[in-house]
Design a protein around this nucleic acid. Structure first.
Lengths: 177, 177
DNA sequence: ACAGATTTATTGCATGTGCAAATACCTGCC
DNA sequence: GGCAGGTATTTGCACATGCAATAAATCTGT
């Protein structure tokens, strides 16, 4: 329990740490307010719609969405419930593996996403991207991106497995139809 | 509503944006898990205790805490409720202004904070600081710190504008009536 | 072929959180 | 003095969210 040997954070380290916490908080807060006010969407909801819109056939398994989204599996289930109630996505059972459920973007969901896109884009630019120089953006992507990759390494196996099985599903589906 | 003129995010911009979101999510999640498992404290709770411990007389007004903490005023009230129930802080009314309430760190709170400090420090180092080079830490502090300051400035501007328009409204109202 | 381990998604439950309204108080103006 | 308007904090309410348990389907080894 006694772990005395750790060096306390110096000014620079503290600066980087607090900058991350506060900058994230500010930017996210603003984005959420704008997105909700103008389109009635939460940020996680927007991200789910956006991921679906970029996916092949505009559909993804719940587990794939959960990996991409910043949400726990149960949180995702509830979010998709809500989006389905609003008609923006629908669920579709996988014929090859009855355990998996696809979330599929509806045309209404596409419409709503297209409407919300400019708001989100403007927000990200206004509250984040445009406040940084090109060099700063590179530096952020490098530093924080590195952290993401290193922490990914630990769940790499899981992700890899998910990708493989996704490909297999795709093949199976193709063969069926 | 139609805002067609905004340039979409390019690879580099997208990279910086996603890096911020994901890195924050990963680091915070881990810190929370460790802090809760080893000391039964949430991250906001730890931050409140830490802020109090650094304050003169180990006491701060609720409003001061709310500014430092990443929490809404109502969220802070509830968090202090909880910490008070556990005996880690106590409330103290201000004799000069009966509206303000001080949150004061108790000796038990100090003890708990001292116990949790190594865990938090180790977590921040392990999941964030030590994954970056000195240059990267500088870059993050520079870029994200700049965002915090700029958004601070905007807040003040908005507040100032609100005050002005409020004054103007007040004048108009006065003239009307 | 089949029992047990594993994977995928959902649900029960408890808790965290924000917004808006309410409360209690202070301040300046008449 | 006393009221209009502002400020500091709390509370009512609704909703988001995570963990652990559950349900259902698939895989694995024998």
């Amino acid at each position: 329990m006694a772990t005395p040997g750790i060096r306390p954070l110096d000014e620079q380290e503290m600066g980087a740490w607090h900058a991350l916490i506060r900058a994230h908080s500010r930017v996210i807060r603003r984005l959420e307010v704008e997105l909700d006010a103008e389109h009635g969407l939460s940020l996680p909801a927007y991200e789910v719609l956006a991921h679906l819109s970029m996916a092949p056939e505009q559909r993804l398994r719940m587990s794939e969405l959960a990996v991409h989204a910043v949400l726990s599996p149960s949180g995702l289930t509830r979010l998709v419930d809500k989006l389905a109630r609003e008609g923006l996505v629908c669920r579709d059972k996988c014929s090859a593996d009855a355990r998996v459920v696809y979330a599929v973007l509806t045309s209404e969901g596409r419409t709503r996403l297209k409407a919300a896109y400019p708001t989100h884009l403007r927000g990200v630019r206004e509250h984040f991207i445009d406040l940084l120089t090109t060099q700063q953006r590179d530096a952020v992507a490098d530093a924080l991106g590195g952290i993401v990759e290193r922490t990914n390494a630990e769940c790499e196996a899981v992700v890899a497995a998910a990708c493989e099985s996704a490909e297999q599903d795709a093949e199976l589906t193709r063969q069926e139809s």
